[in-house]
Computed example of a mutant assay.
Amino acid sequence: MSAAKAKAQSLINENAVIVFSKSYCPYCKSSKDLLNKIGAKYKLLELDELEDGADIQRALEEISNQRTVPNIFIKQKHIGGNSDLQAIASKLPEMLKDAGAV
């Protein structure tokens, strides 16, 4: 397993909610705004600001079959991207409560 894949998997395993993002991405901003609005506690990684961000993004594709950001996990379950998160917005408070992330 590559170091980037091990790091990504470790971050997914250790955090109730994790958002792999890029600081300039409007879809990422929309996801972060939604999570912030409902008071979610989440780990945020801005891949464009990390030295190994591109490697982590490639590793996330192996893990989740999704190359794009945001790439969101709740309780180690791959949620998807912004459109996926927005689609479950009404269920998020309960999901976050179950994950201990509110």
Rank of each mutant, 00 (worst) to 15 (best):
A6T: 12
Q9S: 15
K97L: 13
N65M: 07
E49W: 00
S10T: 13
L50T: 01
I38H: 04
E61M: 11
L11H: 04
P70M: 05
C28E: 02
N71S: 06
D84T: 02
D55E: 15
A87T: 04
Q9G: 07
V69I: 11
D98Y: 01
S21Y: 00
S2R: 07
K97D: 13
S90E: 12
S83C: 04
F20G: 10
P93E: 01
I12Y: 00
E94C: 09
N13D: 15
N71F: 00
L85V: 10
Y24G: 14
E49R: 07
S21D: 01
K43S: 13
E46C: 05
P93N: 00
V17A: 08
I56D: 02
T68V: 09
L60I: 08
D33Y: 00
D98M: 08
L11E: 13
K77Y: 08
A16G: 15
I74M: 10
L92Q: 04
R67S: 14
C28P: 10
R67M: 11
I63Y: 06
Y27S: 09
G81I: 04
S10M: 13
R58E: 12
H78P: 05
M1P: 15
L45P: 05
S90D: 14
D84A: 04
I18D: 13
G53D: 03
E51R: 07
Y27W: 03
A16V: 02
D52W: 01
M1Q: 14
D48C: 11
L96Y: 00
L85K: 10
